[in-house]
Nucleic acid binder design. Structure first.
Lengths: 239, 239
DNA sequence: GCCGATTTGTCCGTATGTATC
DNA sequence: CGATACATACGGACAAATCGG
């Protein structure tokens, strides 16, 4: 980003990640950060607010801003924030690949509207993909995209990254994402396209994505093999 | 809370929840809210920031603040924010009960420290509880509390609410909570104390809680029967 | 296409309150 | 009690995006 507060946030975050500010120590107080970054008090506060919401620090009144982040050894595929499949795979250092199995236009009937949250009559793009890691099919995505906001989307693009296409080519910005995690039985369809070994249940992430216009543009159900699934979240009281 | 921005947040949130401000409509602009609530524009902005982080609205520059929350029919046990087991049960309208199975003091050895994130040598309170809904044992909690900050904790209190005890009696405030959701095999121990039917896997939520002092005071692993488990989360780009 | 009004986003400086030490 | 540090709130300024005439 190009805003001051976000650059300060990134700088502080990186210093925590690389251990410059360590777990259970205080970062410099506002008064010093003002001089360090040559900005106002409120801008520092905004940066620290973002740090807090990401679980890196916890401000303590009268004392200081404490680092509560500890670098963790997370072996598996970790979700968090809003990031694309490709980004998440790269961050976890995995060789990833995507296969598009279904690519068709549909019109939402009442049942589909109820299921996805779209309106009855919306023209949708129905997409089913399988995500492979090191050649193993571990994730199955069933997606519905609002067709009107994804012109020119092809199966080939879908096998790369729909988000990258939306943000890069179409100039769209993804903003808010509501996610729900549940656990479901694996179906015969799951078994047909995924390498499930003897697992009979899957971690299911249902995702409703809104663009900068506040329009719900995507509803995706991601079905993950349990041994490669981790979902991380930070909650802050009062926020 | 007694702060202005939080009261405004609650008022706006309630008006969204009761349908006064509806899905895909705009709430009044800052300029009007300033007059409505008799406060400064920054205070309004703070309130709206909290609304956004909770997934109720999405501000759109040049247009307004759009409501993107839709009342959902969530049948099961929904996690989200920081709330106690009792609060969540009540909110979901379920008859809930807790049984304490294990209640003992332990000292963290190296293995336990690695597992929980506490320091080697910390005095901990090891607690195992089973949560019952309508008489069925659906959740199993394995918790470690930092003993020094929970003086006077008894099995009886643990069967009520440890958080209520901490906040009410001890005057502590729970602030930040890092949670990780995974899916694991049910163990023989799980089967012994839970009503698992024929489920062989569980949704596992691992929780690290910090108090207002930035001290990690609790590490809990909650093991949920899949058919009664839902985890909800809202992510906002750039926050 | 341009201009002005509206609305949100960022940033600043200041004042006051509250908690810690 | 005073110094330090975070928390809340105010009011003002300008930028960026949108929309209507």
């Amino acid at each position: 980003m190009r805003t001051i507060y976000y650059e300060i946030y990134e700088d502080l975050r990186d210093k925590i990640l690389e251990g410059f500010y360590r777990y259970q120590t205080y970062i410099p107080p506002e008064s010093q950060l003002i001089h360090l970054y040559q900005c106002s008090h409120n801008t520092i506060r905004k940066s620290i607010s973002v740090l807090m919401l990401h679980g890196f620090v916890q401000p303590i009144r009268g004392k200081g801003v404490l680092v509560i982040y500890r670098p963790e050894r997370r072996a598996n595929f970790v979700l968090g924030d809003i990031e694309t499949f490709k980004e998440a795979a790269a961050r976890n250092g995995l060789e990833a690949q995507t296969q598009a199995l279904v690519f068709e236009h549909v019109v939402a009937d009442e049942a589909l509207a109820e299921l996805t949250g779209f309106m009855t009559g919306d023209e949708l793009l129905h997409l089913e993909r399988v995500r492979l890691f090191e050649g193993k099919a571990l994730i199955r995505d069933k997606s519905y995209f609002l067709a009107s906001v994804f012109p020119g989307l092809t199966p080939r693009i879908a096998e790369d990254s729909v988000y990258a296409y939306a943000e890069g080519v179409l100039g769209m910005r993804i903003v808010t994402s509501n996610r729900t995690v549940t656990v479901d039985y694996a179906t015969a369809d799951d078994r047909a396209v995924m390498d499930l070994l003897d697992f009979n249940m899957l971690a299911v992430v249902t995702n409703h994505t809104f663009n900068e216009q506040g329009v719900m543009i995507e509803c995706t159900q991601s079905r993950h093999r349990p041994d490669f699934f981790t979902f991380h979240d930070t909650a802050v009281r009062g926020y």
